[in-house]
Design a protein around this nucleic acid. Structure first.
Lengths: 192, 192, 192, 192
DNA sequence: TATGAATGAGCTTTCATTCAT
DNA sequence: TATGAATGAAAGCTCATTCAT
């Protein structure tokens, strides 16, 4: 509607709903976002939403599944194939920062989902691949910190960095953020 | 009601409401928590809540103000007086982990508030003191990473570590977590 | 509280409640006035009201009874004893205007009661004496208009005049209003 | 539902709500009438009301605006064009009595609104046109009573006459009421 | 596919009333 | 007499969902 590109009107309705819902859910929470809110922003009526999703819950599941898969695929194709844990960590930080800054709604959605739904275990979140990665490295002695601490350090840092960025507290160029965070993380996990 | 200590019945109603509301808000979000939920858990009727708080919003403000102040005071008395930025960071990690694990509802509430209310700037959150701490250290050359990255690294790690702990993914003793996170953070900020 | 005289604090509580209730009921209606509103303005708590009146309804009945009697007594002592219907009408207009301007809350209350409660017939309102007065005069041929029209003319005029006065639409001195209304009414009922 | 005509079911919902709300507000006041009352009488659920009006206040505003305009238009087309103030007053009395008896709910609503809302000045009530009419006549010397007294006399009489009629105290034919009130008013304003 | 009216349950809040102190 | 905490019913309003068109 407002700041959207000219292609907006050619996007299929289901996709429009996903985009709008992602933005709203990630900012106002699940109960805090109403079907009416979504419909209004999409430019259709409430009833029309139900032509594309059977209910609100399904929208949420659709989003979390899609995002999880997307991020998992990225990790599997861009991080895991790298040689050596150092290189993997380096790429992971890079990937996460870039993903967060390129897909802010999706990244925020993941966080909201994590905090408000830490019960639903039917969906495999990206974190589970990473924890395995670090467990192996820990067992082999490649990193000295526990796998959970390693994971927390990386994901947590990016998450918080992203929040500060959204609050306009940070105005450093993205490249610098990636470099600093990468080097800090590497030092934290492997020493200097 | 369920797992509460024997002193529960002697706690004043307003305090009971705060305790229950903190737990529920931090787990189910603001819209996801109803006044009825709170009243039922406290053991009173919905109307009685309004003797103590004028509305739902006021409960939220009361909680965020109280927690922010508590944490700020802790930082001001336990972290800032330490000599040297290394010692300060060390104490900060310790403080945050302990606070999170001792006050899980309050810590979770802070995170939820941050994500779902990142517009309200009338309340001074604890983060603002810390960012100043790191800015000074950065200007003096005591740390090499940007202050925002430093802050993100510390707070983000603790936050995520705490989430994993609540999901029962971590079963390491708290002392070890503190030590590992402390050493990792120090390395990240100061090198080895 | 605000514009009240210094004697306010020496007035018995029941009387204070009556005064405040009269003002509020007459301005905001019966449902529009809450026990809390009354209590707050009196300077006591809600519970205390119930030491003086068994319930809200009783306050209303107490007020309408008291005002009706007061006005009836005034009519019986100041209007009925006059000789001749002309003199009686003259005195009636005078009495009503003065009563309205001296007891605005009471007069407004009567109107509100009339409009919002035109069902309750257990209380004898002042109008019923007057209607009898005009019926007799009509039968004797002393007035040419029907008794109901005569009554409507007098009471209605005063009522509306009073509303305009309260809205600050009228700024004529009271004496002039009385004189004008008196003369107009006399002409209306008796010709010139 | 009860005594309604056969066309009821073909009236659009918004109009049904207006009709029912007008009746209830004018009899029980604004706070004394609930959305549930209205919905029940219309034959829909409470929620459905909010498809047609955003809130209770809007229903009240819609009604007062509509009625004010209707009455103002009537005055402008049927009263003002008459030649001479005598003829105008004569037609005004006629118009008001007929309007009141043909639209009892609307007329009662106006009165209730006047008494319970004598603060809201955003809506131009019909009285303001009339006061101008009488002011001019007074300045020209066509009437001897102050404009406000003249207005009070006419509107007040009709209002009260109408109340007595609704209370079944009057059982005279309408024509006679109009004639008597007209002649009484003319005498009051212009002498015989 | 989409609309728009409607439902029904549930939400936040209000309020007359009660009661232990 | 008065307080203040509490109740319970009901108020205004919201919202996910349904359905005829």
């Amino acid at each position: 509607m407002n700041g959207k590109k000219g292609t907006w009107k050619f996007i299929p309705t289901k996709e429009k709903i996903s985009i709008v819902a992602l933005k709203l859910f990630s900012r106002k929470g699940f109960k805090g976002t109403t079907i009416k809110d979504i419909a209004k922003k999409v430019g259709i009526t409430e009833g029309a939403i139900y032509r594309h999703f059977t209910n609100k819950e399904e929208i949420i599941n659709y989003l979390i599944t899609r995002i999880s898969e997307e991020l998992r695929t990225l990790i599997e194709t861009k991080v895991l194939p790298c040689k050596g844990i150092r290189e993997q960590v380096s790429r992971l930080v890079e990937l996460l920062v870039n993903y967060a800054f390129d897909n802010p709604d999706a990244f925020r959605f993941l966080t909201v989902y994590h905090i408000l739904r830490h019960n639903n275990n039917s969906i495999q979140l990206p974190g589970s691949i990473l924890i395995n990665l670090f467990r192996k490295a820990y067992r082999k002695g490649d990193i000295k910190v526990s796998p959970e601490v390693a994971l927390s350090l990386i994901i947590g840092s990016v998450e918080r960095l992203f929040i500060l960025w959204e609050l306009n507290i940070i105005d450093l160029p993205r490249k610098q953020l990636v470099e600093e965070l990468k080097s800090a993380t590497l030092k934290a996990l492997f020493g200097c």
